[in-house]
Design a protein around this nucleic acid. Structure first.
Length: 731
DNA sequence: TGAATCGATGTTTTT
DNA sequence: CATCGATTCA
């Protein structure tokens, strides 16, 4: 092996060659981050570092797979032994290896969000709490955040006690019961995977030491998205050798709502005072135009690590901003632009449509389907979240661990066996009083507790599980799945009904069977238990194929790390007031500086995905919950420097004749962040004699020179000199 | 027991 | 508006 570093620029080379000691790489969008990581690993191997001494952590399986593949291409088969995985699968691996030492039942499972919420519902019921006041999903969220911060139920309780937070104290009680239940069901949720790994390693220094010696070289990708628990985990592992390299971009931190702590990247230099810092600022992805606009947006954020992307790329392509009448108009416009632009030789797979919320995808899908354009939608109805898949999975989980009450409840009457609510309640009651799982209880109850017909049905259900439990080691996972489908008559039931949806469901189950087959082919751990623990960590984007010639639709969050020649960012709408909220920046985030900055980073991420053409669209009217809402253009459009745009009807004609023209206001004044005038605040609603009511979106200058940009209802806006505009403040 | 109907409720974003 | 849950009726 002989790694040539010819293909790297100086900063990249610096990052690759610094093999000993802590290193932080600020890698802006499109600056060849993955290339640096893969070269770095290859270079380490060339220097004689053993592959099994290297750990590379990413956030998605897709990123992990890609990295593994690219290291392999570069360094050859030796790279197979490098541990490349996501945080979650790494912890799963570690916990599975150490079940004995950590005192964990080796049959443990990973619960997904739905299952997590189910258990929480149970807890709320059991504690006689009002589920209106303690919304299960909200509680689940609170608990997950606590785990991200490594807070135990006791920590949470103490914390809330000292703050006098009565509500939070109750949540800590739910949290405590929830943990107890997870223990009896022998399950971990996502947060547990990380937190339990950390806690156990803290408790067992000798085992920690073993892993420190094993992973002497640690690489963390997307470091800006790590939460406290993940931060502690990497810090612990790296403590002995301090060969830790983290790669990230504070401007692309978009997961704080999931516990990601941006200070982890900003404070790295404090943790490792002797660390080396490398900034990658040369962008190889986008045109100068795109970078300039993206920069205009992101520079409005405070507390950034100073850096600015630049590029030598050819200045081609264009940026278009479209105002549309409503969301249907917007969708039609997007599809029109795809069809027009395709005549320039682009494939459908060169286009991506991004949106802020999943709900926006439907209208876009309809428009694409009308034109017969093939599309791939990533994220909404996740494959493994479909009811039919979850049903089959629940059977598998029960076979793996019959005490899993969550799965038991899910499928005891699926397909219909005539087991109703009242019978289940009786079983539940009896199980609670005996302290047994539902499945165990079923073995003891007689007709004195549950009516004969129901009991017979329940027992036939139990026999299906039992029969499969006995053969679990003689069969492949695929065979078990097939037996389950056969024994339960799941597909037969679907075939009987003439619900057209059922055809899809059957297709999905068949797809599921082939996915299981695929698992068997590639996974080293081919057992049922291996399968179940893997599958919980699989996400939609992992299986997304970019080889097909299809338009890609996804949320802006999922877009991170990807690139497309043509990018649409849709729904760029500013709300008119705090109560109604907007779409992007979403909801109340426009009124909270921290949240607003995260929205801005999300916009930045979206824009920097584009290689050649960027389209940004918004609609004056958008239907929300069946009611039309009137919005104004997003402030991000203004920040980017677009104060004029191709408007509704005229735009389409302009576009058809000269497709790639765009209007922009190059003299757009830089935004003055100093708020030295309290009369006119950003967000203030004002009245103008000619234009009516509007909202102040931006301001610049001061005193007599104070300039305001006011967006008036109806979507038009004006730059006004405050001195002459004679505005009346409404609110 | 289970299908049907009514009403409340909700949208960020997801490993 | 669409989905989920609870309540009602066959």
């Amino acid at each position: 092996m002989n790694i040539s570093l010819e293909n790297l620029n100086n900063s990249q080379k610096e990052a690759v060659l610094h093999t000993q000691g802590p290193l932080i790489i600020f890698a802006g969008a499109g600056t060849g981050k993955t290339r640096v990581i893969t070269y770095r690993i290859a270079y380490l191997l060339e220097q004689g570092v053993k592959p099994y001494n290297i750990l590379a952590v990413t956030f998605t399986n897709k990123a992990a797979n890609e990295m593994r593949k690219r290291v392999n291409d570069l360094a050859g088969n030796i790279a197979q032994e490098v541990k490349v995985s996501t945080f979650h699968s790494f912890c799963l691996y570690l916990l599975s290896c150490e079940t004995k030492n950590f005192g964990i039942d080796s049959n443990f499972l990973v619960y997904d969000m739905g299952e997590q919420v189910n258990v929480i519902k149970e807890c709320i019921k059991e504690l006689n709490l009002d589920d209106k006041k303690f919304k299960p999903t909200w509680v689940a969220n609170r608990i997950s955040r606590a785990k991200d911060d490594l807070d135990t139920p006791q920590d949470m309780n103490n914390d809330c006690q000292s703050k006098g937070d009565f509500y939070g104290k109750t949540i800590s009680a739910i949290y405590e019961l929830y943990q107890k239940k997870l223990k009896t069901y022998n399950a971990f949720d996502f947060g547990d995977l990380i937190m339990q790994t950390v806690l156990n390693l803290q408790e067992h220094p000798e085992i920690l030491s073993k892993y420190q010696d094993k992973f002497q070289y640690i690489l963390v990708d997307e470091y800006q998205d790590t939460n406290h628990a993940q931060y502690i985990l990497t810090k612990m592992l790296a403590q002995k050798y301090k060969n830790i390299c983290v790669v990230g971009d504070d401007d692309q931190s978009i997961y704080s709502w999931r516990g990601a702590d941006i200070t982890n990247i900003l404070d790295f230099e404090k943790d490792y005072p002797d660390c080396k810092t490398v900034k990658l600022e040369e962008n190889y992805r986008s045109t100068p135009k795109i970078l300039e606009r993206a920069w205009n947006v992101i520079k409005n954020n405070t507390g950034r690590v100073p850096k600015q992307l630049w590029t030598n790329n050819e200045d081609k392509g264009n940026i278009n901003v479209f105002q549309n009448f409503d969301e249907n108009d917007e969708a039609t416009r997007v599809v029109d632009m795809i069809l027009i632009n395709r005549q320039n030789g682009y494939k459908f797979s060169d286009f991506a449509i991004f949106y802020r919320t999943n709900a926006q995808s439907r209208v876009l899908e309809d428009a694409l389907r009308r034109q017969g354009i093939a599309y791939n939608i990533v994220g909404t109805l996740k494959f493994y979240e479909r009811a039919e898949i979850k049903d089959i999975m629940a059977y598998l989980k029960l076979i793996h661990n019959p005490n899993d009450n969550v799965s038991f409840r899910r499928v005891v009457n699926v397909p219909k066996r005539g087991i109703g609510k009242s019978s289940m309640e009786k079983l539940e009651y009896f199980a609670t009083s005996k302290g047994l799982s539902l499945y165990e209880t079923l073995k003891f109850v007689g007709t004195d507790i549950i009516p004969r017909t129901s009991l017979v049905a329940m027992n036939s259900f139990r026999m299906i599980i039992e029969k499969n439990v006995m053969t679990i080691f003689n069969k492949t996972v695929k065979e078990i799945v097939e037996t389950v489908i056969e024994d339960t008559g799941y597909i037969r039931e679907l075939e009987l009904s003439d619900n057209p949806e059922n055809k899809n469901r059957i297709e999905n189950i068949k797809e599921f069977v082939s996915a299981v087959e695929e698992f068997q082919r590639i996974s080293p751990d081919k057992t049922l238990s291996g399968y179940l623990s893997q599958i919980a960590l699989v996400t939609d984007i992992d299986s997304w194929q970019d080889s097909e010639d299809k338009v890609t639709l996804m949320t802006l969050h999922l877009a991170k790390g990807l690139e497309f020649k043509n990018v649409f960012i849709t729904g760029l709408e500013e709300g008119r007031n705090e109560e109604e909220g907007g779409l992007f920046p979403i909801g109340k985030s426009a009124y909270n500086e921290q949240e607003l900055e995260e929205e801005r980073r999300l916009m930045y991420v979206g824009m920097t995905r584009a290689k050649e053409n960027l389209y940004m669209t918004w609609a004056t009217s958008r239907t929300v919950f069946g009611k039309p809402h009137f919005n104004m253009p997003s402030r991000f459009l203004l920040e980017a420097g677009f104060t004029e745009q191709l408007s509704n009807r005229s735009a389409r004609n302009v576009v058809n004749n000269t497709p790639f023209r765009y209007k922009e206001d190059v003299s757009y004044a830089p935004i003055d962040k100093v708020d030295d005038n309290d009369t006119y605040k950003i967000g203030t609603i004002v009245y103008h004699q000619v234009f009516g009511n509007g909202k102040i979106i931006e301001k610049s200058g001061s005193g007599d020179n104070l300039k305001l940009i006011v967006l008036f209802s109806g979507g038009q806006w004006k730059k006004l000199l405050a001195k002459f505009a004679n505005l009346t403040i409404i609110k």
